[in-house]
Simulated scan of single mutants.
Amino acid sequence: MRDVVGRLRAAYGAPPGHLLRLAGSFALTGWVALRLAGEPAVGRMLLWFVGAAVAHDFVLFPCYGLADRAARRVLGARAAPASGPAPLNHVRVSALASGLLFLVYLPGILRLGRPTYLAASGQDQRPFLARWLLATAALFLASALGYVLRRWWWARHR
């Protein structure tokens, strides 16, 4: 049995578990495609999917790649923690969480669909921007606190 697994790994180039996960993901994707095949709006969904992929690859990826490069310059990213933990990942995690919250609540922040939202919830969309800004501030504050604690721990146990 071990010889069969070894030959499979040599021929495939990865462990057998990888092949199983890949086959499972293709099966799930095929099931979703079959479910969507009968939908009347499948063309629009496909257009949105392709548009999102293109927008990510040609607009968002270069933007956050440049932002990361600028953060590396400003924060002086280090490969080895010779002088303690680097702050870059603390900034990255907070920025990622804030960006995801922004994308999720973008229609509310921009007050798109105001009449529909008001009719469905009885509430106004005005607090969305302030709440997102507060959540972003809380994320960066918690990250800064975590960084300070890590620096303190590192200095104490050095």
Rank of each mutant, 00 (worst) to 15 (best):
Y117P: 02
L34I: 02
A14G: 03
R92V: 07
V4R: 14
G99A: 15
Y105I: 00
R73A: 09
P15F: 01
V42A: 09
V59F: 11
L36V: 09
D68Y: 07
D68R: 07
F58C: 11
S98N: 01
P40S: 14
L34C: 07
A23Q: 11
L112P: 01
A14T: 03
V91R: 09
G108L: 00
H56D: 15
G38Y: 03
A67Q: 09
D57G: 13
L60C: 09
L103G: 12
L110W: 04
V74H: 04
A55Q: 13
A55F: 14
A52L: 15
A77K: 12
G43T: 02
R111Q: 14
L101T: 00
T29C: 05
L22S: 15
W31R: 13
A97S: 10
V93G: 13
P81G: 14
V5C: 06
C63N: 10
R114K: 07
G122L: 04
T29W: 08
A52Y: 14
L110H: 08
G17E: 09
Y117N: 02
S98T: 05
M45P: 07
L88K: 06
T116D: 15
A55Y: 15
R78G: 09
Y64G: 02
A95Q: 10
W48P: 00
R69A: 09
A71Y: 05
L101F: 02
L66Q: 14
V4S: 12
S121P: 00
V42F: 04
V93D: 02
R44I: 05
A33H: 04
R2I: 09
L96R: 12
R114T: 14
R69N: 01
L20D: 01
S98Q: 04
G84H: 11
T116W: 05
V5K: 12
Y12P: 02
R111L: 12
L47P: 00
G113A: 03
L100E: 11
T29H: 05
L46F: 07
R73Y: 01
G38S: 05
R78L: 06
L28A: 12
A95M: 08
L19Q: 01
A97Y: 04
G108I: 03
D68F: 08
L88Y: 09
R21W: 15
D68P: 00
V32I: 11
L22W: 12
V5L: 13
L110P: 06
A55T: 14
L88T: 14
S83G: 08
A71E: 04
R7K: 08
H56I: 10
L112V: 15
M45T: 08
G13F: 00
A10S: 06
L8A: 00
A23P: 07
V4C: 11
L96N: 12
A33Q: 02
L110Q: 08
T116I: 07
A23F: 03
V4M: 12
A71W: 03
A11D: 05
L36C: 11
P81K: 14
R73S: 11
H18L: 10
L88Q: 13
A95N: 09
A119K: 02
P15E: 11
R92P: 01
A77N: 07
A95T: 06
C63I: 15
R35E: 10
P40V: 06
